[in-house]
Design a binder for these strands. Structure first.
Lengths: 164, 164
DNA sequence: GCAAGAAACATAACATGTTAAATATTAACA
DNA sequence: TGTTAATATTTAACATGTTATGTTTCTTGC
C-alpha cells in the first residue's frame, strides 16, 4: 500500500507541476507558433525576424530601442537580427543626426515585398485560429493576457501600448 | 494632412501588430517569469533546469523522453541540460535493463535539497501572482490557455495531461 | 535469424534569450 | 569647461530553441 500511496502522491505532484503558469503560457504559445512556423520557414525568416520586419512596416524609421520594445525582442538579440536583415538587404540602417548614438532603421523595398508575400498567409492562419477557438473567446483571452501582463508589470517596466 | 493620415494609419497598423497572439503570450510569460527569475538566479539554476528538477521530484525514475514532455523541453535541449545537471551532481543517469536505448533519470539527494530550498520561495511568488491577479481569475485563465492549446493541437501532438 | 524500418538519445549548426560588460555619445552640473 | 552620470547600442559568454542528422538499440516481417 505504500507503493499505492506514493504513486498517488506522485500523480498529485505531477498535476500540480503541470499547473504552472509559465508552462501553460509556453504550451499555448508553442501550439500557436506551430501554425505559423512552417509558413515562416518556407520564406526563410525566423519568428523574431518576422516580428521585426512586421513592426517596421507599421512605422517608418524606428530607432533600435523602439523596435526592440515593439517587437518584444531584447536589444542584444535585435542587434544580431538587424545585422542579419541588413546583410539580406531587407532593412537599411542609418545614424540619426540629432543623436549620433541612435540608429534609425527602415524596411527596404525588398523587405516590404517579403512582408507582402507572407502577410496574407499569416492572416489566414490567424483567421483559422480565431475560427477554431472562437473569435469572441480569443478577444477575451487577449484581454486577460494583457491584464495579467500589466497587473504584474513593475514600475520601471515597459507598459502595454495605449488602448485609447 | 497626408502626414496626419499616414500617422493614423501607422497607429492602426501598430495596434494590429501589437494584437498578435504569440506576442501576447510572450509578454504574459515574460511578466510572470520576471517574478521568478531573480529567485532562480540566486540559486544558480536556469528556468529550464528548474523545470526539469521539479518534474523529477514528482516521479522517481523518468526516461529522458518522458521528462522532456513533462517539462516542455525539447530533447536536444534536455540532452544538454541533463549533462549540466549531472556534472553538478543534481541528478543521476542510468541505462534501463529492459531497453538499452532508454536512459533513466533520477534526482539526487543534493538535487532534492536544492528543490526543497527553492520550492517554498517559488510557491510564495506564485501565491503573490494569484493574489495580484485573482485566484479565481487565474484558474479561468489556465482553463482558457489549456483549451487553446488542445484546440490547436494536431493529432500527432503531445496531449495535455489527463484532467480526470 | 536477418535485413529494413522504427524508436530513444545524442550531437551539430545556427539563431535567439539572458546577463554583464564595453563603447560611444549626450546630458548635467559643479 | 571639464568631469561625471546617463543613454543608445554593441559585443561577449553562456544556455536554450529549432531543425537536421548521427548512433545505438529494439522490432517487425520475411
Amino acid at each position: 500500500m505504500s507503493a499505492i500511496l506514493s504513486r498517488t502522491k506522485a500523480a498529485d505532484d505531477l498535476r500540480a507541476f503541470s499547473r504552472s503558469l509559465p508552462m501553460a503560457l509556453l504550451k499555448a504559445r508553442e501550439a500557436v507558433m506551430a501554425r505559423f512556423r512552417p509558413l515562416l520557414r518556407e520564406h526563410d525568416v525566423t519568428e523574431q525576424q518576422w516580428r521585426a520586419l512586421r513592426a517596421l512596416t507599421t512605422v517608418e524609421g524606428l530607432r533600435a530601442g523602439e523596435l526592440a520594445r515593439l517587437s518584444c525582442i531584447s536589444m542584444p538579440s535585435l542587434s544580431r537580427i538587424l545585422k542579419t536583415l541588413d546583410k539580406r538587404g531587407l532593412i537599411a540602417r542609418s545614424s540619426e543626426d540629432s543623436d549620433q548614438r541612435a540608429v534609425n532603421i527602415a524596411i527596404s523595398d525588398e523587405g516590404r515585398r517579403l512582408v507582402a508575400r507572407i502577410g496574407p498567409h499569416s492572416e489566414q492562419r490567424y483567421a483559422d485560429i480565431a475560427e477554431a477557438f472562437g473569435a469572441r473567446r480569443l478577444e477575451a483571452l487577449y484581454a486577460e493576457l494583457d491584464a495579467l501582463t500589466s497587473c504584474l508589470a513593475v514600475d520601471g517596466e515597459i507598459p502595454l501600448p495605449d488602448e485609447d
